[in-house]
């Protein structure tokens, strides 16, 4: 990614001007024309303030989700049932951390510092994906998360590889490349359990029952209630609506569940011959609202864990900076 500060010198001549006064209609029209022509917008290009704000919010929320997303799975690393599973889970959690860092770097190119972004997460001001506020109660949850949560994330992220903002699109290409292993390792765990003892199969079914509905909520509110849809579509940040992506996910996932010989926890689920889509039952949006408002089963735990990790690591960051400052000091008159 690029640094925001690269061209500061060139912009100084405009110092003193309210940046918003530059948002005249001509600039905005030129910007929209570039977006319409599928050109990528780069960090130092002119962009509407609202575009910058929207992207900063979206990319940083995405980064926070990757970082908080390490917690539910990190819970099972020491208890993985074999060395093979443990190595894979460890690699997956390390990937999530990497994805968070690519995304923070992309968000920073829009002019907000890393420290500020992390602060927004730790203070509870910024949101992250609702899905990570659910607990991981059994080993089967590692299977369900890889298969369903990462499956839903991939569905969301593939169109973002063509997002109009260059640094975000490039980060997503990297993320998507790495993420397909996540989904496959999750499905393999589910398959092993589903073909195991009756007790193991019940464990897989229980995990599917608990994760299915929260996964459908990952795509966000229905199109009729979404706040950010229209403008994001015009700016080519969003290529498909929440409901379109949700339907794609259901259509792709239902046959995979049938292959596992597991039952999806939705009595209304039925195949519609005419449209070729799987029709699903009503989603409990009140639950979604509550989880986002901080009242999910694990919201407090997740933030507390992030805050502790950040505070416990403070002395390491301070020591590293102090050491670097000492090394950089010009050799002072050796006394």
């Amino acid at each position: 990614m690029y640094t925001q500060a690269l061209n500061q010198a060139g912009n100084d001549s405009q110092a003193g001007n309210d940046p918003r006064s530059l948002e005249d209609a001509a600039e905005a029209a030129r910007f929209q024309a570039r977006v319409d022509a599928e050109e990528r917008i780069e960090p130092n290009d002119w962009m509407p303030e609202a575009y910058r704000r929207t992207l900063t919010r979206q990319i940083s929320q995405h980064a926070h989700s990757e970082i908080v997303g390490m917690l539910p799975e990190g819970n099972w690393i020491t208890r993985a049932p074999s060395l093979r599973r443990k190595a894979a889970l460890l690699a997956k959690v390390q990937d999530e951390c990497g994805h968070g860092l690519y995304l923070y770097a992309a968000a920073e190119t829009l002019g907000t510092s890393r420290e500020e972004l992390v602060d927004q997460l730790l203070s509870g001001k910024a949101k992250y994906s609702s899905i990570f506020n659910y607990p991981t109660l059994t080993w089967a949850d590692m299977g369900a998360i890889g298969w369903l949560v990462d499956g839903a994330a991939i569905m969301n992220q593939i169109p973002l590889c063509r997002c109009s903002y260059g640094p975000y699109a490039r980060a997503m290409i990297r993320v998507c490349k790495e993420e397909s292993f996540h989904q496959r390792q999750g499905y393999e765990i589910m398959l092993t359990l589903a073909r195991g003892s009756a007790e193991q199969k019940a464990m897989a079914q229980d995990a599917l029952n608990r994760w299915w509905w929260p996964c459908l909520m990952m795509f966000g509110p229905p199109d009729t209630a979404s706040q950010h849809g229209d403008q994001s579509t015009r700016w080519k940040i969003k290529r498909f609506s929440n409901d379109e992506l949700r339907q794609k996910f259901v259509d792709a996932t239902v046959p995979q569940a049938h292959f596992l010989d597991l039952t999806l926890p939705d009595s209304d689920l039925a195949f519609d011959e005419e449209s070729g889509h799987w029709r699903f039952g009503a989603i409990d949006w009140e639950e979604f609202r509550q989880v986002l408002a901080g009242n999910g089963p694990c919201n407090r735990d997740r933030l507390a864990a992030r805050r502790n990790a950040h505070e416990d690591g403070a002395w390491v960051r301070e020591a590293a900076l102090a050491y670097a400052a000492k090394q950089n000091k010009p050799a002072q008159a050796a006394e």
């Binding site: 690029y2 590293a320 050491y323």
Partner: peptide, 11 residues
């Protein structure tokens, strides 16, 4: 390939 934050060149 991208960027990162670190205190010094070694890190």
């Amino acid at each position: 390939v991208g960027s990162l934050h670190a205190a010094d060149a070694t890190l």
